[in-house]
Design a protein around this nucleic acid. Structure first.
Lengths: 121, 121
DNA sequence: ATCGGTGCAAAGGGTTTGCAGGGTA
DNA sequence: TACCCTGCAAACCCTTTGCACCGAT
């Protein structure tokens, strides 16, 4: 995979965020920083990163998916139904394995909990 | 909310399925059974059911959302990354509350686990 | 009879694709 | 130089909307 200016700009934008980003924000953010980069290029690269497992997709109800660069260490996410905030949770004591029947394996990075944060409760 | 033939057909279709259904399948399924019912009506009714909390939306990575009539008792879902099957899990021993920090509350019906089923492992 | 529900067709938004030109290795 | 990557614009798909008619209460 070649390193190009467009791709660098997209990775930079994703790296700067401490939480998952909607596709819309990636496209708009790149357009703002680098108006010369076309949205097709952004979509193509997002797809390419997903296929090479370097990008994680976090699906949300009603609001499309959020994207986040794969990081060291697994973590999961929490989506507040009130304020729509999405945050990363890093509880390594997570025992999601016991939530599924015997024989199934679980990928914690795809786990999204939703509910209410303290402010919205 | 009025009971009409179109709405009955849509609810019937949703009731017959033992697992969540993509919007596409609702639209196509209704079109097959009742070609006289327009897809706009289907979309409008789905939206209406969602707003009245009678329908639950289950977001999936890359594949739009799945829909399911609200049932008695909370349950959550598992999505296999291999065969794309989605199934309902009914473990009432679920203790998702301990997965989030103090002060947060979790809605189990919005929880989607993903990973591999026994066949795809 | 009323007013919410429906069909139709068109618009809308986000994402994908074909193609020719441009940049990276 | 070779080939991947990119820009552009159009196509695409799914969903939503405006409007007039229909039908459930």
């Amino acid at each position: 995979m070649r390193k190009t200016q467009a791709r660098q700009a997209i990775v930079d934008l994703l790296s700067k965020s401490d939480r998952p980003v909607p596709a819309r924000d990636i496209v708009l953010g790149v357009a703002r920083d680098r108006p010369d980069i076309n949205k097709s290029t952004v979509y193509r690269f997002i797809k390419s990163l997903l296929e090479s497992q370097q990008l994680i997709s976090i699906p949300l109800p009603g609001r499309g998916a959020l994207y986040e660069l794969r990081r060291e260490g697994e973590h999961y996410h929490f989506s507040c139904e009130g304020c729509q905030e999405v945050l990363c949770l890093n509880d390594t004591k997570l025992e999601v394995g016991r939530l599924v029947p015997r024989g199934y394996t679980v990928s914690p990075q795809n786990l999204v909990l939703s509910g209410l944060c303290p402010k919205c409760s």
